[in-house]
Write a protein that binds this DNA or RNA. Structure first.
Length: 511
RNA sequence: GGGCCCUUAGCUCAGCGGUAGAGCAGCGGCCUUUUAAGCCGUUGGCCGCGGGUUCAAAUCCCGCAGGGCCCA
């Protein structure tokens, strides 16, 4: 939309600021100097001297200290021959206090040309104002960068969601919580990585462009390699490569990276998203449960300071252990359905029809159980819950349960009504795996374009021997949503996918 | 994919058949400890785009675009 910034278009604000820029130059100033004069970060000063009791004005002035700090001008309050401004740097604010008699030439003239959004550096002693706010009594001003376009309104911030996502920098400048959320995201990823390393896992990187996309039932994005003249796919999961690494002798590996799935967008789905996958030789699903509980409770404690965190109107407890429930029990419990009804194919079909599930006649009983689970239970699983015993049709890479080959040794972890994690006792029987791939190929023939493709090299790797292995994927974006109480995945991805603006509007941004 | 809702000044929003409005921001004044500073004055609009209905459309109808929420 035209509102989404039209930088090179003339407008009232830009023209006036361009004039001010010329006046700055006329004062003999470099409007875009190469380096800022800076002795302290704003956060550093705030942390050291914010305490008004420990640092009353007399004590601050008694320091005889002169500091230089830089920041973006957020507010300007002009009071005749004195001016107050807030500078911001990295989400922290500091007040600058200018008095005409204090400021060295050409500081006062510079001040007259200052707009909100500009960057300046100020130098002078620290002081505390009458109202007790830590400030710099400015003796010297250095102009650092002119903002030609105005900032969004100062106390409502930027509200238009479209513009917030398209011009995230404006969102970050004017909505304080946004910067905080993304700093928290960084700390969450860091804590997850630290935890995995502490457990002896090795971080690896596997292909994001794959000749055969595998490891998840999802439609891939396709691209093309010119020199080799071959199609390549953006990965939907790293799974098959990570398992090859276990075949190759690694004991514990993990990868935190992007996956790409060619599907719709929603508050829980972005086409590219960040996933952690981990695999451990010799372990199984139970080990993955324990790892997951400890990981989540540790990260919640370390980053958020508590295992009890708000989620909308509710509170989620990340304290281990998490609840465990089989898929059938979940359907029975949340659908108030007699457990025996789920043991018989005909009654499952009848039930599925009664809740308007599509294509009931052509789907397998296992698939329908998955649908019924989604229908009755998924949204209700607010507290962390491991759902186990998945139908084999839904799980082509997972070992069957002992004694019942209609179901597999898999869990999905649900929190806040969302699928957060997915784990298997990995299928390591190459002959069984080949049969499962065959079943997927049949599904593909039948029209399911999310069904997996045969990856023969992966089967070959299994023929060389994969030890018993537990594996899991955890959706990092969703984890950040949960821990930061964010309702939409777009609020935890800096630049979520947006449809491009129309050419006439996009031109405004490319000139 | 289906349903509902939104799009008006740089930003936040009113207005919902009869001359386009407010606050903030901007511009010009006054003000040497303010902090949503204050006071006086003032500029700024293809009312998302395209059709239609009407004497008259920001307002009603249809289509399109972008976005949001709910459902699949």
């Amino acid at each position: 939309m035209v509102r989404a910034g039209a930088p090179m278009q003339p407008n009232q604000y830009r023209d006036i600021r361009l004039e001010k820029l010329e006046k700055l130059k006329a004062l003999g100033l470099d409007a875009w100097p190469r380096k800022a004069k800076r002795t302290h970060g704003i956060a550093q000063l705030a942390a050291a001297y914010a305490d008004a009791e420990a640092w009353p004005n007399e004590k601050l002035e008694g320091l005889g200290l002169s500091v230089s700090a830089m920041g973006r001008v957020l507010t300007i309050r002009e009071m005749g021959k004195s001016v107050f401004a807030h500078l911001t740097e990295n989400g922290e604010k500091l007040q600058a206090f200018f008095r005409k008699d204090d400021v060295a030439e050409p500081g006062w003239d510079v001040l007259k040309l200052l707009d909100m959004g500009d960057f300046i550096s100020v130098t002078g002693p620290l002081m505390r104002t009458k109202t007790g706010e830590l400030s710099i009594r400015v003796k010297e001003v250095q102009f650092l960068s002119k903002a030609l376009l105005p900032l969004p309104e100062k106390w409502h911030g930027l509200q238009d969601k479209e513009q917030r996502y398209r011009q995230r920098y404006l969102d970050l400048i004017s909505n304080g919580d946004v910067l905080k959320t993304f700093r928290t995201r960084s700390r969450i990823v860091s804590a997850v990585r630290r935890y995995m390393e502490d457990q002896g896992y090795l971080e690896v990187e596997t292909p994001m462009m794959q000749p055969i996309p595998g490891g998840a039932t999802a439609r891939p994005f396709i691209t093309h390699h010119n020199a080799l003249d071959m199609p390549l796919y953006l990965r939907v999961a790293p799974e098959l490569y990570l398992k090859r690494l276990i075949v190759g002798g690694f004991e514990k590996v993990f990868e935190i990276n992007r996956n790409f799935r060619n599907e719709g967008l929603s508050v829980r789905h972005n086409p590219e998203f960040t996933m952690m996958e981990m695999y451990e030789a010799g372990s199984d699903l139970r080990d993955m449960m324990t790892l997951t509980e400890n990981l989540l409770s540790t990260v919640a404690r370390e980053v958020m300071g508590s295992e009890q965190l708000p989620w909308g109107e509710q509170v989620i407890s990340y304290a281990a252990p998490f609840r465990r429930l089989t898929m059938k029990d979940a359907i029975a419990q949340y659908g108030a359905i007699d457990r025996h009804q789920l043991e018989d194919g005909d009654s499952v079909r009848t039930l599925a029809k009664s809740v308007h599930i599509e294509d009931v006649e052509t789907k397998t009983v296992g698939t329908l159980l998955g649908d019924l689970f989604e229908h009755y239970a998924e949204k209700q699983l607010i507290q962390p819950t491991f759902i186990t015993d998945y139908p084999i049709e839904l799980s082509p890479l997972t070992k069957a349960l002992e004694g019942d080959d209609r179901f597999v040794d898999r869990f999905e972890l649900f929190i806040g009504g969302m699928e957060l994690a997915n784990a298997y006792s990995e299928l390591n029987d190459p002959i069984d795996q080949m049969g499962r791939f065959q079943a997927q190929m049949d599904e593909r023939e039948a029209g399911n374009d999310e069904a997996m493709l045969l990856d023969m090299d992966f089967v070959t790797s299994l023929e060389h021997g994969l030890p018993p292995t537990g594996g899991e994927g955890i959706g990092i974006d969703r984890l950040v949503m949960l821990l930061t109480n964010s309702a939409s995945i777009r609020d935890v991805i800096l630049f979520p996918l947006m449809r491009p603006m129309k050419p006439s509007e996009a031109a405004d941004n490319t000139e």
